[in-house]
Simulated assay, not measured.
Amino acid sequence: MARWESGARERLQRAALDLFDAQGFDHTTAADIAAAAGLTERTFFRYFGDKREALFSGHGVFEQMFVDGAVAVPPGRPPLEVIGAALQAASTFFPDERRDYSRRRDRVIAADAGLRERELLKMANLARLLGETLRDRDVPEPGATLAAELGVTVFRVGFAQWLAEGEDRSMGEILAGLLRETSRLAA
């Protein structure tokens, strides 16, 4: 088996998703994933601490996109403008070519209570990071927390819409529309 072949991480992630989708998360081992990718189990653990990480390993980059988008907004701008910029920056993490992968990943997560819990924790951490970013911009409480939680809710609703069968709008388009709808609801 190839040990240092390029693209090993991506091959492991694809193999994991294929196996989780076909036979379920609980019925798939790290050894199964490594074998399906043509790699060793040791190689699997070089990239991932456990099999869940094959689904969640890109989350740090995702979070950083939100934070970078928020930080790029000039000081003094309203909190929802900052959240809108964060959402638009994060939308680039989901190009249209990633939609099928994301649909399959979402289906795997929905089928497993532990993975659903992990996804919820991921979103809670994102809200915490956005709240910190807003507080660093001198947005007072409870406004910073409310705006951060609203941003995560808009993302979650938008992500579900983006995954829907037949949907062809970009993630950025969907999120911008939901933010406008949020403003209309608040008016």
Results as ranks from 00 to 15, higher is better:
L19F: 09
R116F: 11
T145S: 15
P75S: 13
E63C: 11
E173S: 13
D50Q: 05
G166H: 04
A36C: 06
W4S: 15
E119D: 14
L130F: 08
E132Q: 12
D50A: 09
I83T: 07
E81D: 15
V61W: 09
Q88F: 03
Y101T: 11
R104K: 10
A2L: 03
G49Q: 10
A22C: 06
E53R: 12
V61L: 10
R77P: 01
E167V: 02
A113Y: 06
D96H: 04
A160F: 02
D112P: 02
P95H: 02
H59V: 13
S6L: 06
A127E: 13
A22W: 01
D106S: 14
E41W: 00
T28C: 07
A34S: 05
P140T: 15
R46S: 14
F62I: 00
F25T: 00
R107D: 03
E119G: 10
D136T: 01
D136A: 15
L126F: 07
R98Q: 09
L175A: 01
R14M: 08
R103A: 08
A176N: 03
L163D: 05
M1Q: 13
L175R: 06
G7Q: 03
E63Y: 14
L185S: 08
R52W: 00
S102H: 07
R156K: 12
A144R: 06
D21Q: 13
T92G: 02
D168L: 03
R52N: 02
V154R: 03
F93A: 15
A186C: 11
L121N: 12
S91R: 08
G60I: 06
A30P: 02
I174F: 01
R107K: 12
V73L: 00
E5M: 09
Q88D: 10
A37H: 07
E5K: 14
D112L: 09
E53H: 13
Q23N: 03
P142S: 10
G69H: 08
F44I: 08
I33H: 10
W4G: 15
R118C: 04
D136N: 13
E119K: 11
L185A: 13
Y47K: 06
R103H: 06
G131M: 04
S6I: 00
G114Y: 11
R116C: 15
D106R: 13
S57L: 04
